[in-house]
Computed example of a mutant assay.
Amino acid sequence: MRRKTVLRAALAATAAIPVALAGGPALARTLTGSGTAPQLTPPCDDGDHPTPEQIEGPYFKPNSPQRTSLLEPGMPGTPLTVSGYVFGRACLPVAGVLLDFWQADANGAYDNTGFRLRGHQFTDSRGSFALTTIVPGLYPGRTRHLHVKLQAPGRPVLTTQLYFPGEPRNNTDTIFDARLLMTVRDAGGGREAAFDFVLDVPQDPGPGPGPGPSPSPGGTWAVGTAYRAGDRVTYAGRAYVCLQAHTAQPGWEPPAVPALWRAA
């Protein structure tokens, strides 16, 4: 199990699911109908590569309004929610990351005089973001896509684009990059998408497993122990059952990560 998979599960367990996504998971790589995860941006794993860059295109405008919803009254188009996390190079979430989105309307046109379908937001303390918008329309020469700029505090700007799976024009668009495919599903008359970004942000992954188990006070749970689903431990006088296979690390004590441990 990858480090980010466990971290993402723990983050999700402590977060309230957005109303628009209440009918299902909001995590990247979990929304495919077949259950098979597509190959997306390289997952963060100490020393791995960040999310690929893409060209800005001719329609970017600075100074967009800060907002998480780009919808306006009477706006035509299929509703779309996009959610996910922003991670650094050590698979740890990055708070306070600026995400500036812009896109075409349902007819494939960009608003170049105002800020329709343009807006920026910041990741929260868990490194998560959520955008409410519409599915962008098509225009000559391009497949369906969203534009985004990301900037972690004090770091360079990453400019990239996000794509929709199953689009016929994906095969003919010379800019298209399969690593930037979102996971997308139909839901409630709209569509739900998810994507996790990996920024080139140096991070200390924290202490890894030591040379031997380090028992917790008053319990059998120990840092550095490889646990399997179904394993039982005690911690601070309570019994817990393991829900996901993982290697215990500081900060992943059973009471702190309900995605990994259930009180017995």
Rank of each mutant, 00 (worst) to 15 (best):
Gly141Phe: 02
Arg29Asp: 10
Arg155Lys: 15
Ile175Glu: 10
Thr41Leu: 07
Tyr85Asn: 14
Gly212Met: 11
Ser216Asn: 06
Gly24Gln: 12
Leu150Lys: 14
Asn63Phe: 15
Ala256Pro: 05
Arg8Cys: 08
Pro213Trp: 03
Ala28Trp: 13
Trp252Ala: 12
Cys44Met: 03
Glu192Trp: 06
Ala187Glu: 07
Met182Pro: 03
Gly127Val: 08
Thr159Ala: 02
Thr78Ser: 02
Lys61Cys: 05
Asp196Phe: 09
Gly47Phe: 10
Gln161Cys: 08
Gly141Tyr: 03
Gly127Cys: 09
Thr81Ile: 00
Pro43Asp: 05
Cys242Val: 12
Phe122Asn: 12
Glu192Phe: 04
Gly210Lys: 09
Gly212Lys: 11
Pro156Val: 10
Ile175Asp: 08
Thr14Phe: 05
Ala90Tyr: 06
Gly212Glu: 14
Val82Ile: 15
Gly230Pro: 04
Gly219Pro: 05
Ala248Asn: 10
Thr30Pro: 05
Val233Glu: 00
Leu21Ile: 11
Cys44Trp: 06
Phe122Ala: 13
Pro209Asp: 08
Val233Arg: 00
Arg238Glu: 01
Thr247Pro: 11
Asp45Ala: 12
Gly57Ile: 07
Ala226Ile: 03
Leu146Asp: 13
Ala187Ile: 03
His120Met: 03
Gly108Glu: 01
Thr234Trp: 01
Val184Cys: 02
Gly251Cys: 12
Gln54Val: 08
Asp124Leu: 07
Val184Leu: 08
Arg126His: 15
Phe129Ile: 05
Pro205Gln: 08
Pro168Thr: 04
Tyr110Arg: 08
Gln121Ile: 04
Leu146Cys: 13
Thr234Lys: 00
Val241Trp: 00
Arg144Cys: 15
Arg169Tyr: 05
